[in-house]
Each structure stands twice: as structure tokens, then as C-alpha cells.
Design a protein around this nucleic acid. Structure first.
Lengths: 347, 347
DNA sequence: CAAAAAATTTCAAACGTTTGCAAATGCCAT
DNA sequence: ATGGCATTTGCAAACGTTTGAAATTTTTTG
């Protein structure tokens, strides 16, 4: 590894002081025009690149923010990251993305590492294991440092800090209401992991909607998944084997809805004729599969943008200030497609 | 923002020197047992966290590597990142992920920034615009610094540095060969952007396979897409309107294949009865859509792992050494599903 | 030509940590 | 008391950069 050229190297070469070189390269007005040009040309020639590490140390600013997410292997999560990047990249910030794989230990380690690296802010989407464990000392650590700390999408309820989430409750509610309105009476729900806020909210939307329409809440029709397409297979098979199978399935996300569709089709049943299916996420593919999937749109990119804006605003109201929590709930919108078309029997 | 506790702060509190504190916290043997315990306890209590920035400056090691990718909003790319993370996280490395959105300018800026941040290695997947532009001065910059530099997936051909790619040529070849073997004679190809190595290689596989079986290569049947599902709609519509439409479509990836399936279905044609469809990526969803999609499996995670291993190996053969390029080509494998089942007519 | 003014350059400190070497302290035996 | 040794602590430099203030050089002016 070639050691990078430093300002000192250049100074030695030109028999001047490092200060002069530094000022020349930064176009400081008090530097002689010739000196400036010569130094800049030479710096260019030898490929000088300012050492950001030393600058960070000096200024106590790293221009880096940490993003901790359970996975990036997923339309929604990556849309969030894109949103954050869209706002923060132009401001000169770099993203330090950490993937926890839903593990508490990794999440905790990453928090440590990011704080140690002196990131200027942390965006975090809580991992499943963390919800299960009930630990949140690592989050307290962040708060102690009082750098901007914003939950994206998956928050730890009751933890006072910034958050940008979507209205999972009403999203789920509207999806189930739609199913009711097209005449379905036995609506199953493939729910997400227990204890996870987004999953619980969607479940709540499902339950409350059934109650509103005086439909029974049947525990047999509420089954667990882990958001992945494979995890829908077994529960949906179970549903199909019931004496009285459901006439609609509401999946906690598009992935499990698509998994459900496969099982239903493999049984020779029609969608939505026999069983209507709705998902959550409105992932791009949902419009293109067959039958196209009704889904609740989650503005992932917008979540990222709003979260980044909270951070950017904090920067603006220049310094000294404590980071004050701000909560944003973005609306979700039902997109109706073939998989729940009224009365239809497409397959 | 609370300023973090430093070693100096602790030293002042205990009326000892920073050296003592440093050694105590690092369990240096020459520190008195009591001193050590007291200091450690106090550090713990006030939440001391070593400042990695200063350490990086001192050691000229940042334990960070840069990853530049065109997008993360996609199964394949995120699988690569997961693979890299899986190898490098245990080694204490942090990933600095930069998303170029296929833009040359961003790619170039990110290279600058990463070098400035003194990352210890760079993994890069070339953006589409960079291919178009033919610029690669920014890549020369990386080489000048001679830190490990590895192309992942999308390389700049002829650039001497490490690379891990997959065998796109044979993957495409086997997909097309399969289509020929189930009796198709007019096979269309939805290709990727011009000049991009992976796209060109797949096109080459397609062309060579046709030649092998003495089938004509018809320019009308080769149309452009940009990898996105929407970008398949217009070209496939054009194909369907031909006097003599194709009897099979080979998509440059699963997304465009799924887009093609939609257009074909909307025309009332059957898959694979009328038109067989094959894709590339073997994204998880391809097994669950209807009809399930034949696809060439790309071991994304493995690409990440191999790339990270090249880096890890370089670290091992301790220092001083120049980074020597190493090229790895991973095999791709055809996964046959309903969309090309022999003679079938599922829809 | 000297003195004042302006332009340009250098000094030194700072950011937080580590580490080789020197210094100090304590203890024991003489 | 003194020398010798072991244990423990402190000093100072280093990493690369910036920046206020001081120092130097050059230019202008009377």
C-alpha cells in the first residue's frame, strides 16, 4: 500500500511550512498567487488527497451517519436507504450501513462501533431479536451521547427519540375493510413476528376492522410468519386444510402474500374467486405478477427522506442544542389490483 | 451534542497521566492492579468510548472498506453486500456503502470520498453511465494508492485489478440452449444496456447458442431494457406485434422476464404454451410467481464472500506487499421451472 | 531613504490516542 | 544509610490538518 502524500511531504518539497500548503490548497486569500498555483499544480500531479481522518479529529465532525437495519435484501428497506442517501449525500454526508440480520448482538455491537467511530447521527430500524430480548441498553448509550437518533420504520415503543414510521394500523385496516366490502367474511391474517411494532399494528388494524363489521376474530385464522416468502407456505397450507377455510388472506407483507398465492393455486383454487389475497409494501413486482396483487403502499423512500430531514434540520438550527425528538407518521395507501377484484375469478 | 468523555478527562479526574489511563483501559501489565480497576470502573461509569478517529489517524488503519454499487434496491446486489459483510464483519471491518444510482458523477465522487476517508479497500460494481462514458480516471486513482481494489459483478474490462464475476456467458448459453431443446425456434432476447459487460456477455451467450443450433440471429428479436421491470413492457409489446412473434423470450434478468410475462398474459397468450420465458438471477420470488419462472441462478452472496476473501487474504500476507490482482469467475446454474416446461400450456 | 502599510509566510497549538524510554517510587538486602 | 532491583508512572512524540497570532518580507508613501 503506497502511503498517501501528505501536506508535510509537499511542504518539504517546496521548503515551506505545512500551513502555507494547507492555505494554498484551500484557496486562502492571503497566499501569493504564484505560490498557490505552484502548490496546487504539484498537489494535483502527485495525487494529493486530504486526509479526512485527521480533519475529523480536528473538527470533531466526521460527516458520517450510521444506519442500522435488519436487512437490506428487500424492496422496502433499500428504498428507505435510498431516501436517506438522496437527502444526505448532497450535504456531504457518508452513510455507514450496518446490517443486523435481525440479531440483537450485532445490533448492539454496531451501535458501539458507530459511536466509537463518532458518527454524527444514527438511524435505526430495530431488529426482531431486540424486540424479543427486551434489551435496550445499547439505545440508551446513543441517547447519552445525545446525537440525533431516529427510528426508521421499526421503533422501540416508548423510547423518547425521533422516529419516522408509517401508519400501519390504518393501512391494515383499509386492506381488511376492502376485503370485507368485496364480500369476504372469513379473512385470515398472516402476521409478522410477535412483539414487533409494525406487525402488531397491522394485526391490530386487522382485528379492529373485523370488529367494526361484527365479524368474529378467529384465532385459527391468525398465523405467524417471519416476513419471508417461504414462511407463508406452512401456515397457509394449514389454513387450506381447515374444515372451513378462509375466503381471503391478508399478508403482513407482499412476500408472504405471494407465498400464500402459490399455495392457494397449487390447491387448484382460484384467486380471487375462491380466495382473495392482499399484501403490504406495494413492492414493484406486485403489479406485474399474476394475478396482480392488491397491496398497501408503504412510502419507503419517503420514510428515508423524512428521517434525513429531521437530521438536516437539527444541523441547521446550529449546534449546542439537544436533539429533540420528533415523530412522523406517514400515511399508507391501499392499491387495489386483480387479487381482490370484486367477485372476479381470474384463474 | 454532549462531547464524549476522553482519556484526558479521566486522567484529570484521577490526577494521573493519559498514558496511565490508556494502559489501564487496555489492560497493560505494567499498571497497578488497583489503579487499573479504579480507572476501568470509572470509565465504564461515565460511558467512555475510545475515539476510533484518533486511533485511525495514529495507526493509519481505519478498519473500513468502501463498497460502491449502482443500486441496492435489488435482490442480487444486496446479496453481494450480505456476503461481503458476512466475511468482513467478524474481522472488525465496517462497510461504507455508496449507491451510485448508475451515475458516473456520483461514482467518481464516491471514489474520491472513500480514498479521502482512507478506507483500506474498495469494492466496486461499475455503473451504467461509467460504461457509457468510457471514463475511468477515478479508477486509476484507486490503483495509484494501491489499496485492494476489487470489481464485484460488473467489471471494467481490461482494467488490471481484482474481480469476482459470474459466468454470464455460459449462464445465458444454457438458458437459451434449454429453450431450444424444448423446441423453440424463434427466441427473443431482452438485453441489458449496451456496453455493460454482464449484459454483453449474456447477449453473446444468446447469440452463440443460436449459432450452435443453426438458428438465425434476428436483430428484430433483440431489444434493449434497463434491467427494470417496467422497461420490458414496451419492447415486449413490440415483439408481440411482429408479423411472426417469438415463441420464447430470454430476459437479461428476472425483472424484465416478469415484465414480459405480464405483457404476454395480457395478450391472452399462454406461458409456456405459446411463449416460453426465462430470466436471470433466480431471485427468491421467481419460484413463487405464476407460472414459476425458469432462471439462471447467480450466486450473489458467494460473489460477496469471494471478494471479501481476496481482501482478507491480502491482509493476512502481512503488509508491504502490493495488492495483486486475482480474478474469480463463479459458475451460474440454470433452474428450470414452469415457465419453460416442456410442451406445457399452463395458462 | 526611512517608516508605515500591506502582503505573505511561519509558529505553535489543538484534536485523542498510543508507546518507547526515562523517571520515580517502593522494597529488600546488605 | 545505600545500592540494586522491580514495579509503576509520566514525558514526549507521533499521526495530518487547520488556524489565530506573530513574524517576516515586500510594497507603498511621504
Amino acid at each position: 500500500m503506497n502511503k498517501p502524500v501528505t501536506i508535510k511531504d509537499i511542504a518539504k518539497k517546496f521548503k515551506c511550512s505545512p500551513s502555507t500548503v494547507s492555505r494554498a490548497l484551500n484557496n486562502h486569500p492571503s497566499i501569493n498567487e504564484d505560490t498557490r498555483r505552484n502548490l496546487q499544480e504539484y498537489a494535483q500531479k502527485v495525487g494529493y488527497q486530504r486526509n479526512q481522518v485527521s480533519l475529523s479529529l480536528l473538527n470533531k465532525k466526521t460527516a458520517t451517519i450510521g444506519v442500522i437495519v435488519p436487512t437490506i435484501n428487500n424492496y422496502h428497506e433499500s428504498a428507505i436507504i435510498e431516501g436517506i442517501e438522496a437527502v444526505l449525500q448532497p450535504l456531504g454526508y457518508t452513510l455507514n450501513i450496518c446490517v443486523t440480520n435481525e440479531q440483537y448482538l450485532l445490533e448492539s455491537e454496531y451501535v458501539d462501533k458507530l459511536l466509537s467511530n463518532r458518527v454524527e447521527g444514527i438511524f435505526l430500524s430495530v431488529s426482531q431479536e431486540t424486540y424479543d430480548s427486551g434489551h435496550y441498553e445499547h439505545l440508551e448509550q446513543i441517547k447519552k451521547r445525545s446525537i440525533p437518533f431516529i427510528f426508521i420504520d421499526r421503533e422501540y415503543e416508548g423510547f423518547a427519540t425521533g422516529s419516522v414510521i408509517i401508519d400501519d394500523y390504518h393501512g391494515a385496516f383499509s386492506a381488511v375493510e376492502h376485503l370485507v366490502k368485496i364480500g369476504r367474511r372469513r379473512i385470515a391474517h398472516l402476521k409478522g413476528p410477535n412483539g414487533m411494532a409494525v406487525a402488531e399494528e397491522r394485526l391490530r388494524g386487522y382485528v379492529e376492522c373485523l370488529k367494526k363489521y361484527d365479524l368474529p376474530v378467529d384465532e385459527q385464522l391468525i398465523l405467524n410468519t417471519n416476513f419471508k416468502v417461504e414462511s407463508a407456505i406452512e401456515p397457509v397450507t394449514k389454513l387450506m386444510n381447515l374444515a372451513e377455510p378462509p375466503d381471503a388472506v391478508f399478508g403482513v407483507n407482499d412476500q408472504v402474500a405471494i407465498g400464500a398465492m402459490k399455495v392457494i393455486r397449487d390447491r387448484g383454487l382460484s384467486i380471487p374467486g375462491d380466495i382473495a389475497v392482499a399484501g403490504f409494501d406495494n413492492s414493484p413486482i406486485s403489479a406485474y405478477i399474476y394475478p396482480s396483487l392488491t397491496s398497501v403502499a408503504r412510502p419507503g423512500r419517503q420514510i428515508g427522506i423524512e428521517a434525513a430531514k429531521i437530521f438536516a434540520d437539527y444541523l441547521q438550527q446550529s449546534s449546542g442544542k439537544e436533539f429533540s425528538s420528533k415523530h412522523i407518521v406517514l400515511p399508507s395507501e391501499l392499491i387495489v389490483r386483480e387479487s381482490t377484484m370484486y367477485g372476479g375469478g381470474l384463474i
